[in-house]
């Protein structure tokens, strides 16, 4: 029995047991930082980075929820998880005086509804989901609204995200509501509108929505701006349209979990990530838009002016950031299941 216990300890307590020297524990999406940056950080500050990755916000959330102390110093949740985690007391407030490089950030991405005054989070990479079209088949100028997806001309050629929130946000916006609606009647209305779209849908894909476009399987649909930017290296005919109702925006942010072991090192790491040269390295490695205005200026001209990656201010102001819908997610999921069992 004792042996089994020892085995358990060896397997489940690798953290904490070996804490020595200067270390910062970072928990990030996989493939979401240039490994070179971690080495540079250690070289300049003498703080070693202990790096772990996750594949979904929910997995990250569950792990942070379970760790009460000696957990990670920096984590990278997406937009509305910042809101949920701060509400649940899972985050430490940031000390902005320890983050002088914050001044480099894109001011349009600060002080958003999911984290007023950026009390808990610093934006890292960001992007949008809007309408992608294949210009060989569909004239991009003729597409102005989410409603164009319902056009019967595109029957069997439409792509939707395989994500309940993204699909419903689109339908809700086209009805003139918020994409973060919690009113059951309005969610139902969006569901009824989506019912009419389902027969047109050829594929649901949110892992890599550019693929069905590149494969000529679809001609119009929802897509991430970053995916269009990447797809254009292979096929310049895939265009990105910000609909007049507004696109959905997301931000992946840096936060300090409540279970962090070293708040100072965490601040040092976040500030380092906000340095323009470092942000540029990460942005080029990951391929999504940087939230660092100074770094954006340093990018090559084609990238920094690509509208799919960096929308102009009007498109950004028209758009909406996803926020936490709380228990209404159960209503969304119920209708999603109904849509998918038609």
């Amino acid at each position: 029995m004792k042996k089994v216990l020892v085995l358990f300890l060896v397997f489940f307590l690798p953290l904490g047991a070996f804490a020595a020297g200067k270390e910062v524990y970072v928990f990030n999406w996989s493939q979401y930082i240039d490994p070179e940056v971690l080495e540079l950080f250690q070289k300049e500050t003498g703080i070693a980075v202990k790096y772990s990755t996750f594949e979904s916000n929910e997995a990250m959330f569950a792990k942070l929820k379970i760790l009460k102390k000696d957990g990670y110093d920096v984590a990278f949740p997406s937009t509305y998880f910042v809101e949920r985690m701060s509400r649940l007391g899972m985050l430490k407030p940031l000390d902005h005086s320890k983050l002088p490089n914050m001044k480099n950030l894109n001011q349009d991405l600060l002080n958003k509804p999911y984290d007023p005054n950026n009390a808990y989070s610093i934006p890292y990479l960001w992007g949008s989901s809007a309408i992608g079209v294949n210009a060989k088949v569909v004239d991009p100028a003729s597409i102005t609204s989410w409603d164009d997806l319902w056009n019967p001309a595109y029957k069997g050629k439409v792509l939707l995200m395989d994500d309940v929130r993204d699909v419903f946000a689109m339908s809700l916006r086209s009805l003139g509501y918020s994409g973060n609606e919690t009113d059951p009647a309005r969610i139902k209305e969006a569901y009824e509108k989506l019912l009419k779209l389902i027969p047109s849908v050829k594929v649901f894909n949110s892992d890599s929505p550019k693929q069905p476009f590149l494969n000529n399987e679809v001609v119009i649909g929802q897509i991430w701006g970053g995916e269009v930017y990447q797809a254009n290296e292979e096929n310049p005919d895939i265009k990105y349209v910000y609909p007049k109702e507004g696109a959905t925006f997301w931000v992946d942010s840096m936060v300090i979990p409540a279970s962090a072991r070293n708040i100072d090192y965490a601040h040092a790491f976040i500030d380092f990530m906000c340095r323009p040269d470092i942000a540029k390295i990460n942005c080029e490695y990951v391929g999504y838009a940087t939230a660092n205005a100074k770094a954006q200026e340093m990018l090559d001209e084609r990238t920094r002016n690509h509208k799919a990656a960096y929308p102009d201010k009007a498109d950004l102001d028209r758009g909406e950031f996803q926020t936490d819908v709380g228990d209404a997610i159960m209503i969304y999921e119920k209708y999603w299941e109904m849509l998918k069992t038609q």
């Binding site: 979904s56 929910e58 997995a59 959330f61 309940v164 997610i329 159960m330 999921e333 999603w336 299941e337």
Partner: peptide, 11 residues
């Protein structure tokens, strides 16, 4: 269905 309960609704 199972995946969505764990990853979307947290149920």
């Amino acid at each position: 269905f199972i995946k969505n309960q764990f990853l979307t609704t947290g149920n």
